[in-house]
């Protein structure tokens, strides 16, 4: 029952962070609609390699929508047109025969391009380093049942904790803001009794680091939520705003 389609890809090619990039067009022929987007890129890359041309660099690892390594902007949309889906889980049945797909990397000052579609997201790691953890040492923990956590709080924490750190929120935000990512982590930890203890310091440090990395400011555009493959809600951003407003110095 497999259906195949032909596509034109207009792909951003850039040798490195310091080099100017440009678009190049490639044909992707006889693409099975059961393929994932990355499998389609694999096929194109195999073809390029055989022609002796530099294959398109793109990040990926798990290919099941959980590691957060993949991602590109397809026709202006981070992770492509399907909501709640990473690029690796996006299947070609979402596209029509004869379509042209413009494929670009995440574009943001805080995510410099490494090559082609691969970008450097270490700024996210530095934000976590600034406070995205609970300071407990191995062995210090009391029995798991020492603290009961209400189901509603546990669920809200889990909703936020699902963030895969892919950076699509930044790519989609018209301001290149990392608010959804930061708010998801802060909410996950601050809402739980275990994490509330150092909640004030956490939120101040993480937001300060976020600013330092050169991410933009939120102006409540909600593009991030729409692009987020885990559909992280912007109510986390509201929560972050409250945590920060109330944080004692």
């Amino acid at each position: 029952m497999s259906v195949t389609i032909n596509l034109t890809l207009r792909v951003w090619r850039q040798k490195g962070a310091q080099v100017e990039g440009h678009f190049e067009d490639y044909k992707a022929s006889a693409i099975d609609t059961d393929m994932s987007f990355l499998e389609m890129l694999d096929v194109v890359n195999e073809g390029l390699t055989k022609e002796g041309k530099d294959p398109i660099a793109f990040d990926h690892d798990c290919r099941e929508g959980i590691c957060g390594m993949c991602g590109a902007v397809v026709n202006g949309q981070a992770h492509g047109p399907q909501r709640g889906t990473t690029l690796c889980q996006l299947h070609m049945r979402n596209f029509k025969d004869g379509e042209t797909l413009v494929i670009e990397p995440w574009r943001s000052a805080a995510f410099p391009v490494i090559k082609d579609l691969a970008v450097d997201r270490s700024s996210f790691d530095r934000i976590i380093t600034s406070g995205g953890f609970i300071s407990v040492r191995t062995g210090q923990a009391p029995d798991a049942h020492a603290i009961a956590v209400g189901k509603d709080k546990a669920e809200l924490a889990m909703d936020a904790a699902q963030c895969i750190g892919c950076g699509a929120c930044v790519a989609a935000c018209p301001n290149g803001a990392a608010m959804l990512f930061v708010s998801a982590k802060v909410t996950h930890l601050n809402i739980l009794p275990q994490g509330a203890v150092e909640g004030d310091i956490r939120v101040r440090h993480m937001v300060t680091q976020m600013d330092k990395e050169g991410f933009g400011n939120c102006s409540n555009e909600y593009e991030c939520e729409a692009a987020c493959p885990k559909s992280i809600s912007v109510s986390n951003i509201a929560r972050l705003n409250t945590y920060l407003r109330k944080a004692k110095v």
Partner: peptide
């Protein structure tokens, strides 16, 4: 914000997913 998103021109196709 303009600096953070990397200038005025960003993506070649302007088709946001959200309902902004």
């Amino acid at each position: 914000n303009i600096k953070a998103r990397g200038g005025f021109k960003r993506y070649a196709v302007d088709k946001p997913v959200g309902d902004r």
